[in-house]
Design a protein around this nucleic acid. Structure first.
Length: 307
DNA sequence: TCCCAGGTCCTAC
DNA sequence: GTAGGACCTGGG
């Protein structure tokens, strides 16, 4: 591998806001100023310092670095244009947009993203990071970088489909082990074809991710599906709805009969449709900013959030 | 010791 | 069709 360096030529990008936003879990800050970051993206060990993206090492089956960088950082998205398209009377969203300049939607690998959000089920962000790090150490490929920091690629569908229960449990997956193993098998045998999902529209893709995995659902519900569609397939109509976003929805629409208080399938769908009507085809970007603000606001009152 | 976490699944009604 | 509870586990 030859050393590569690419200047990140986008108008607005803040790595700390972006990497800590809950859309991705494998980036680490190398200093206290959140200005120097290390991550493994599709087999590439990448360091981000100032505006430079440096390639430090590659796994055997890594993506092409030059092609990866503009895609991963979604440089085709004109952030200013997207954010100015949202209704100006939503003061909560408006203040979030001004508080988190440079928070960008990434375009991740669908397979890694899918497993990441299956691992997110009923656990907090530090705990998700731990699970993914454990999986990568045990089932990924070690990548040489010349740094002290040890880096591992995200495990392949093949590796996870062959993983044994005891090993998955030792990665601290808990009850999610069976979801991860099952989904990996579906992908490995071609029953769940993520390439095919990439050619689908939003509602087709939701149905595909939720139903095709098992005949009935098995670890992928509407929330996990929306996360995968937004954070990896870049389907910006997707509006992941979790306990945090529900707080926002209830503050804004508390009196609206159409918005129930639970996240049942039916209610999930109807709230999503209301949000798409409100924010349009880039609703997912709005979700990113709402999530960030509401989570941090709650952390200030409860002082429990960890980066 | 108790509670909660970027949900999903199962059961009872 | 839906409310209510179980679910692994780390960390506060």
């Amino acid at each position: 591998m030859r050393n590569c360096q690419i200047e990140l030529n986008i108008e607005s990008f803040n790595p700390a806001f972006t990497f800590n936003s809950g859309q991705v879990f494998r980036w680490k800050s190398l200093n206290d100023n959140y200005e120097d970051w290390l991550g493994v993206v599709e087999g590439n060990v990448i360091r981000i310092k100032n505006r430079d993206v440096l390639l430090l090492g590659q796994a055997t089956n890594s993506s092409d670095f030059g092609e990866l960088v503009p895609r991963y950082f979604s440089i085709a998205d004109n952030l200013a244009e997207i954010l100015s398209s949202f209704p100006q009377d939503d003061l909560f969203l408006k203040s979030s947009i001004s508080e988190f300049p440079g928070l960008r939607l990434l375009t991740q690998d669908p397979w890694e993203c899918l497993i990441s959000f299956v691992c997110s089920i009923n656990c907090n962000i530090p705990s998700i990071k731990l699970k993914l790090e454990n999986l990568s150490k045990m089932f990924g490929e070690k990548i040489h970088t010349g740094m002290d920091e040890k880096c591992y690629s995200f495990p392949s569908p093949r590796a996870l489909s062959r993983a044994e229960k005891k090993d998955l449990l030792s990665c601290k997956l808990g009850f999610r082990w069976k979801y991860v193993q099952f989904i990996a098998k579906q992908v490995q045998i071609g029953k769940l074809d993520l390439d095919r999902v990439s050619s689908m529209n939003y509602s087709e893709a939701v149905d595909e991710l939720i139903s095709e995995v098992s005949g009935k659902t098995f670890g992928v519900g509407p929330k996990v599906a929306d996360c995968v569609l937004l954070y990896s397939f870049h389907l910006k109509e997707a509006f992941p709805l979790d306990v945090w976003i529900l707080k926002y929805v209830q503050e804004i629409y508390g009196e609206n009969q159409a918005v129930g208080k639970s996240l049942s399938r039916k209610n999930y769908k109807s709230i999503g449709e209301i949000m798409r009507k409100k924010f349009g085809s880039n609703a997912g970007y709005a979700q990113l900013f709402i999530y960030e603000k509401i989570r941090r606001r709650s952390a200030i009152t409860r002082n429990t959030m960890q980066a």
